[in-house]
Design a protein around this nucleic acid. Structure first.
Length: 428
RNA sequence: GGAGAGGUGGCCGAGUGGCCGAAGGCAGCGGUUUGCUAAACCGCCGUAGGGACAAAAUCUCUACCGAGGGUUCAAAUCCCUCCCUCUCCGCCA
């Protein structure tokens, strides 16, 4: 979301800077609405001024016991005119904000320009890719072979793109959640949060899912609530419409939540296994910082997510998303991709973004420094978040990377205490 | 779900139709006084949108007393709808 005045004064500049990202923004319409709003606002305010003056006159006349009928009749007309214009103004403002809320964020200067994922830029790699004597199996075969994943029953209970985990599989999922949360809270300084899994329309608008991406969300039938697609939504909205004490920044939160996504438009992609589900677990990292420190924070947060993979000894790489592949709200995004032997490629397991003030403006999240009365002006915070990590995909990576010739799977040492001492998942 | 009571500035709290953007207090900021601390005293102290100015400072207008409508010349105040909080009852993990 942009400041409307900034948007109006820099319309061409913003349109050019967005490039392809702004293709479906009706720029001419936006310009017209913006001008119309200003004209109507000026008119209404002048009439209001007249009305306020006139009403005071009426009050004065009545106190003086003088007739006020004429003044009242005149003001009645002014009032009707205002009501009329305000109706038009309301319509214009609604149309304007609907358009403005659909304009994506501006990419930061360091983001590589590109059209799609092919033009993302690799930043670094970590770990060594495992070699296998026989060709590595995909995780669903491993999981079903071990009796810890059951997609048939998931389809029976609900439908496609759901999973059932049982036994050691369920335990592994829980172990990963606990390991991630413990690491982030005790070593990286995040505060743990258990937020609502359903949120209202304002929260979804605050973080940028609405109004543009309603089709991607699950919505309740009887309440205007949505199932969260990521913990980013409730956790960022913790501080919606708040002015934070600048001395307390950065505020860092971590939350484990299930996430719910319609996955509209991804038919046929990753139809098997745990990669793309309507419901999956994720541990999320969220940070609120001052503008001058937000890019340092992005590096730090990405490093926190990476440390989980390092502890699990899973090979990965970090890429910078190009302008064409970035999400709607982000100014800069690093994706962390883990190696999947069965696919012989890196697949996304975390996405870490700096939203700068984009979400903060939508959600009205500000900060004020306590020192000095004169520079105590409030300003929008910068918000960031990243997966630390997607839990289901972590299970995928563990099953595939640590699979053994006999069909068993070795558990990474850091998880063993969380697994009740189990070192290896074998067929039961 | 039923009955009732409420939602006012960073916080507390007064205000039932007109010089109310809103008393008073607390907190905060600046200053005076003071050997220091404390206290006392004085002043400042919300957000947003227009306009004036090249811009900043500043000036000015408008809006905002949970949200949205309505009545009225005029609404924090009256009416309607919705949201939220609290109390009691019911139900429930």
């Amino acid at each position: 979301m942009y400041d409307l005045k900034v948007l109006r004064d820099n319309l061409d500049h913003i349109r050019d800077a967005l490039g392809r990202r702004g293709n479906d923004v009706p720029w001419d319409n936006l310009r017209a609405l913006s001008e119309e709003r200003r004209a109507l606002t000026t008119q209404v305010e002048q009439l209001r001024r007249d009305l306020n003056k006139g009403s005071e006159d009426v009050a004065r006349l009545r106190r003086a016991k003088e007739p006020a009928d004429e003044a009242m009749a005149t003001m009645k007309q002014v009032g009707d005119r205002i009501k009329d214009l305000e109706g038009s103004l309301r319509k214009v403002e609604e149309a304007l904000s609907d358009v403005a809320l659909r304009i994506p964020n501006l990419p930061q200067a360091s983001v590589p320009v590109g059209n799609d994922a092919a033009e993302n830029v690799e930043v670094r790699r970590w770990g060594s890719i495992p070699s296998f004597s026989i060709s590595p199996k995909p995780h669903w075969e491993i999981g079903e072979g071990l009796g810890i994943l059951d997609f048939d029953r998931a389809a029976k209970i609900t439908g496609a793109r759901f999973s059932v985990m049982t036994g050691a599989g369920a335990r592994l999922e829980r172990a990963l959640i606990n390991f991630m949360l413990d690491t982030h809270t005790t070593q990286h300084g995040y505060r743990e949060v258990v937020p609502p899994l359903m949120v209202n329309r304002s929260s979804m608008t605050g973080t940028g899912q609405l109004p543009k991406f309603e089709d991607d969300l699950f919505r309740l039938k009887d309440e205007d609530y949505f199932l969260i697609p990521t913990a980013e939504v409730p956790v960022t909205n913790l501080h919606r419409e708040e002015i934070l004490n600048g001395d307390t920044l950065p505020l860092r939160y971590t939350a484990y939540t299930p996430c719910f996504r319609r996955e509209a438009g991804s038919y046929g992609k990753d139809t098997r296994g745990l990669i793309r589900l309507h419901q999956f677990n994720k541990v999320e990292l969220v940070s609120f910082t001052t503008p001058d420190r937000s890019y340092d924070e992005l590096e730090r947060l990405t490093g926190h997510a990476e440390s989980i993979l390092q502890n699990l000894n899973l090979p990965y790489r970090v890429i910078t998303l190009c302008t064409g592949d970035m999400g709607f709200s982000a100014a800069k995004t690093y994706d962390i991709e883990v190696w999947l032997p069965s696919q012989q490629q890196y697949r996304e397991i975390s996405s870490c973004s700096n939203f700068e003030s984009f979400q903060a403006r939508r959600a009205s999240i500000k900060y004020r420094s306590s020192g000095g009365g004169k520079d105590a002006k409030s300003d929008f915070v910068h918000t960031l978040n990243g997966s630390g990590l997607a839990v289901g995909r972590s299970v995928v990576a563990i099953l595939e990377n640590f699979q053994q010739p006999d069909g068993s799977v070795e558990i990474p040492p850091v998880l063993r205490t969380y697994m009740g001492g189990v070192e290896r998942i074998t067929i039961e």
